[in-house]
Design a protein around this nucleic acid. Structure first.
Length: 863
RNA sequence: GCGGGUGUGGCGGAAUUGGUAGACGCGCGGGAUUCAAAAUCCCGUUUCCCUAGGAAGUGUCGGUUCGAUUCCGACCACCCGUACCA
């Protein structure tokens, strides 16, 4: 028996697979009878290092890809790089150098360990989104979308750092201050490009029901994000003199039934009406100032204290003009949602209630919850948002919530002041970024012709290499000549668009490029892309559950409608699995500098930086990220133990959907297991091992211990297969452990053992492919185990004749009996009551009832 | 704040989805082998009372049920997202 040496074995098989082009997905043609299978994991951002999250993500995808290959599919399993983004620019600012060099160096550095992990990837399709060839096609898509009416321009808010004179990402705003300058960040309006994702809002919403291979939770998150609601949009007329230029206030509500409970109308600080009043109202100016300083994230706005300013204006109640409501400007109303104005019904909306209490506005309940009586019902600190019966509501009195909504909308329509409206929380996708390292937006701004698309023949609009990062702001803006252009329409001097596209655009169609080839005259070959798409199994982190997946769903619809992709459903991902994240404790110094775990030593209950000896503060356990430096380098594991160990380890123990906290212990256990499997297989003399490694029938006449072994083997095959099918790789791993133990105990080399070893080898292949190949070769298997068919369990061997049944008394287990599975209820009852321990128990009790579930449980109810 | 999720031994987790809680692995303890060590193998390992055996126990509190880790309600803690991190 030779010791297993991963350092030699693993590269050997990787070279053999590469030489055989084992994982090159063939372009489908007529004589390929195999069904297609597109397995894809979210491609990595080239941060410079592979981390455990990557290993986990790609190991899972690899299990699926290899398993599906074994099941007879032609599998496409590609890899590439999500290569545009801020970190490259930050690196250039902090350490000098160029984002392009930084990115391609990182890609080179990450490709090696990724290859070293032995994933069944088709590397021939590799690309990076920052490749000119890729972003050229993205520009073509932008122009196609524009032609289709899916692109437009409007003003939108950005975080503005007044010291650095630059736009900041939300991540770069810390406690309302710029991360470098420390200056109070302001909200600014800029002209920006938008993708009209709301055009597909309804379809994006309803099509979720058809995505049955997505988890319920992701579908719910997306539904809530899109936030489709039915309600009423109507206009409040002014009571008294109307301000100049306005004839009312348009509001949207999902609860028009509560209109008689309205006690105020609130408008966003940047609503046109408020803006018009701003000039001579210092209170409004103050409010606007705090709103501007609050930043633009939803979280900050929602968490802020509710504040408002009474404008002094009043509007009339649409159903009863003897009633009028005050008009406020309020910090919790957003111009971007609905009409930028709402009416407040404090009794039935918590936010409105908080606001009303603060400004001493009336709280009139109009919905009576079941079981309350109208005379005594009051709303105190808690608004009532549930259904009930309307009262205090004139013509709506006595109606239920649903009927009340319908009737109030009908009335608004009758009065000619409003109508039923469908509204969405989803906003159009702002794609302009004032940054260098992204796909240039192919537009030329001309004083005479406006925003003119760059003609297709002039694509790509290439990023200039000669840029500097020595001052804040967009390097494209600072470049001496790049933005000078000629208007394609009138040929006069014009200015090139200096905004680049949101990097989410890059990841919204890369899968189509993987499938459709590196074409230069179009984004991808439609025929090939349409053949492979949709992705059969997509795997990635939960953190992408809403944005990335929604944007990709938008892109495929747009590509379809532009005639670039034959994908009738418009859905890019048929199956989706969101894995949990690899987390790790984070550490920082007293002055807030993050420290890598590798540089942390734990002693005497405290944490210390090894290099400086300084005591550290332990931060939260959270998503491994570069900024927090709480990353663990898998290269150490690969080098010390091998790729199979790293792969096996990340798939063991934790269920794939759950977060895992990385710990060092356990890698050793995986390493031991590799040795154990190799010992088990290698002690078999291949010459004695004459069994066929294919179908699982060669030991069909086994009896006694051999039959028992066969039962274990076939049970293991069934369970491992089920584990993979259900994305519960940890249970497959546990089952493989048990199988190895069973095979080890059985010390005879016969057909039953041969069958078991053959099944074991094929089943570990998706998890530890190098070890599996080595075992396969030793056992005398033909070709690669990678090409061998998946073992199939014989159902006859999965059914047990006898079954152990627990006997409970009042729900507590007191005894168990082993009985034939077929035993009927009557006999089971007799046998249970005859059991000596049960007899003792029930001796001085009265039996009330006996519940018998054959094959499961016997429960005697007695007192 | 809002939306979504998670919570089971010392640790990672399992439980046929309402039917024996703790499979499997790690760690730990004991033993075998060894001149010794590494490696390997065997046994034990939820807690408490400990004697056959018993009692408690799946974040907390309550409910439904013959029976709840599983279903329902309230709460607590942590994680993800919150539209310019990817």
């Amino acid at each position: 028996m030779t010791r297993y040496n991963a350092a030699i074995t693993e590269p050997k098989w990787q070279e053999a697979w590469a030489a055989a082009e084992s994982f090159t997905a063939r372009t489908p043609n007529k004589d390929t009878s195999k069904p297609k299978y597109f397995a894809l994991e979210m491609f990595p951002y080239p941060s410079g290092r592979i981390h455990m999250g990557h290993v986990r993500n790609y190991a899972m995808g690899d299990v699926v890809a290899r398993y599906k290959r074994a099941c007879g599919f032609e599998v496409l399993h590609p890899m590439g790089w999500d290569a545009f983004g801020m970190p490259a620019e930050n690196a250039a600012i902090e350490q000098g150098g160029h984002p392009k060099a930084w990115t391609y160096d990182n890609i080179a550095a990450m490709r090696e360990p990724l290859k070293r992990l032995g994933f069944a990837l088709d590397w021939s399709r590799e690309f990076a989104t920052c490749d000119t060839a890729y972003y050229k096609q993205q520009q073509a898509i932008f122009l196609a979308f524009m032609k289709k009416g899916l692109v437009y321009r409007k003003t939108a808010k950005v975080n503005w750092d007044p010291v650095d004179m630059t736009v900041l990402a939300n991540e770069q705003v810390i406690d309302g201050k710029g991360w470098r300058s420390g200056a109070q960040v302001e909200t600014r309006e800029l002209d920006q490009w938008f993708f009209k994702i709301t055009h597909y809002a309804d379809d994006l919403y309803y099509a979720l029901d058809g995505l049955t291979r997505w988890s319920e939770k992701v579908r719910t998150m997306q539904k809530n994000w899109i936030g489709r609601s039915e309600g009423a949009q109507f206009k409040f007329a002014f009571a008294g003199a109307a301000p100049e230029g306005f004839d009312g206030v348009e509001v949207y509500t999902t609860r028009p039934d509560t209109l008689f409970g309205a006690s105020f109308v609130a408008l966003a600080y940047d609503h046109p009406l408020i803006k018009s009043l701003m000039a001579d109202n210092t209170q409004l100016q103050e409010l606007a100032k705090t709103c501007v300083a609050m930043g633009s994230t939803e979280e900050a706005i929602e968490k802020a204290q509710k504040r408002g300013v009474d404008t002094g204006l009043r509007v009339a109640h649409p159903f009863d003009d003897t009633l009028s409501l005050p008009v406020y400007a309020a910090n919790f109303v957003l111009m971007g949602y609905g009409t930028g104005a709402v009416f407040g019904c404090p009794a039935h909306d918590q936010r409105d209630l908080d606001f009303a209490r603060k400004y001493k506005l009336g709280v009139t309940p109009v919905v009576l919850p079941e079981g309350e009586d109208a005379a005594n019902y009051t709303v105190e600190a808690q608004a009532y948002t549930g259904p009930g019966v309307l009262y205090n509501s004139q013509f709506l009195d006595g109606l239920g919530t649903k009927e009340g909504i319908a009737l109030s909308i009908a009335k608004l329509e009758d009065l000619g002041v409003g109508q039923k409206t469908v509204s969405y929380r989803l906003r159009d996708w702002g794609v302009s970024r004032q940054r260098y390292w992204g796909c240039p937006i192919p537009i030329i701004h001309c004083g005479a012709c406006g925003a003119v698309p760059v003609p297709t023949k002039d694509l790509p609009v290439e990023l200039p290499d000669d840029v500097s990062f020595d001052k804040p702001g967009n390097p494209l803006e600072h470049h001496p000549s790049w933005k000078n252009a000629t208007c394609p329409a009138c040929k006069k001097p014009a200015r090139r668009e200096t905004d680049t596209l949101d990097t989410f655009a890059d990841s919204s169609w890369y899968f189509a490029r993987f499938a459709g080839g590196n074409t230069d005259d179009k984004p991808f070959d439609n025929k090939q892309a349409s053949h492979w798409l949709p992705v059969d199994q997509y795997i990635g982190g939960v953190e992408h559950a809403v944005l990335h997946l929604l944007y990709a769903r938008f892109f495929t619809r747009g590509l379809r409608d532009c005639g670039l992709l034959d994908l009738p459903s418009g859905e890019p991902f048929d199956g989706l699995f969101t894995q949990g994240m690899v987390t790790h404790a984070s550490y920082k110094t007293k002055d807030g500098k993050w420290v890598m775990p590798a540089d942390v030593d734990e002693k005497d209950g405290g944490f210390f930086e090894i290099s400086s000896g300084e005591e550290l503060v332990r931060g939260p356990v959270e998503k491994m990220s570069k900024s927090k430096k709480n990353v663990v380098d898998p290269a150490d594991i690969i080098e010390g133990y091998g790729a199979d160990v790293a792969r096996w380890f990340v798939l063991s123990d934790s269920p794939p959907a759950r977060d895992v906290e990385w710990t060092q212990s356990g890698a050793v256990g995986a390493w031991r297991f590799v040795g154990k499997v190799w010992a088990l297989v290698s002690e078999t003399n291949a010459k004695d091992f004459s069994a066929d490694l294919g179908p699982m029938t060669q030991a069909k006449d086994a009896s006694g211990a051999a039959l028992e072994l066969r039962r274990s083997v076939h049970k293991a095959v069934a369970n491992v297969t089920q584990g993979i099918d259900q994305f519960r790789f940890n249970t497959s791993v546990a089952q493989i452990y048990e199988l190895v133990a069973a095979l080890k105990k059985y010390e005879i080399f016969d057909a039953a053992k041969a069958e078991g070893l053959g099944a074991l080898t094929r089943m570990i292949a998706p998890f530890m492919p190098h070890l599996a190949e080595e075992c396969w070769a030793h056992l005398g298997g033909e070709g690669f185990v990678t090409d061998a068919p998946w073992p199939v369990a014989d159902p006859k061997l999965l059914v047990e004749d006898d079954v152990v049944m627990p006997i409970q008394i009042n729900g507590k287990k007191r005894a168990e009996i082993s009985v034939p599975k077929s035993m009927g209820k009557d006999e089971l009852e007799q046998q249970s009551l005859a059991h000596p321990r049960i007899k003792d128990y029930v001796a001085d009790l009265t039996i009330r009832k006996i519940i018998i579930v054959p094959g499961r449980i016997i429960n005697i109810v007695a007192n």
